[in-house]
Amino acid sequence: MKKTAKPLDKRFKIAHREALIGIILVLINFIWWYGFAYGLGSTDVHNYTYIFGLPAWFFYSCVGGFVVMVILVILTVKFLFKEVPFEEEEGESK
């Protein structure tokens, strides 16, 4: 078994944090998607409102949700993700 040295732990800490961010993002994505789709879409079709010709539930849930997620993903990657080396430590960490 390899011993885990200090610099390795640090990289894993970053990795764990980022995995957690991934989970949070997917939860936000799901809630947004579900909330608009079934929140607005469950009424009778005759009462639907429309945005750019699409039913409002669909516009917010699928089109809006897509745009919002892209923005969130860009922001998290730009500001919360850190660059770490993948293999440099090989020599010292063994």
Binding site: I21, G22, V84
Partner: peptide, 12 residues
């Protein structure tokens, strides 16, 4: 999701 969750840990 895939790249974030497997992410750096898997690569390392």
């Amino acid at each position: 999701f895939t790249l974030m969750v497997l992410g750096k840990k898997f690569a390392i």
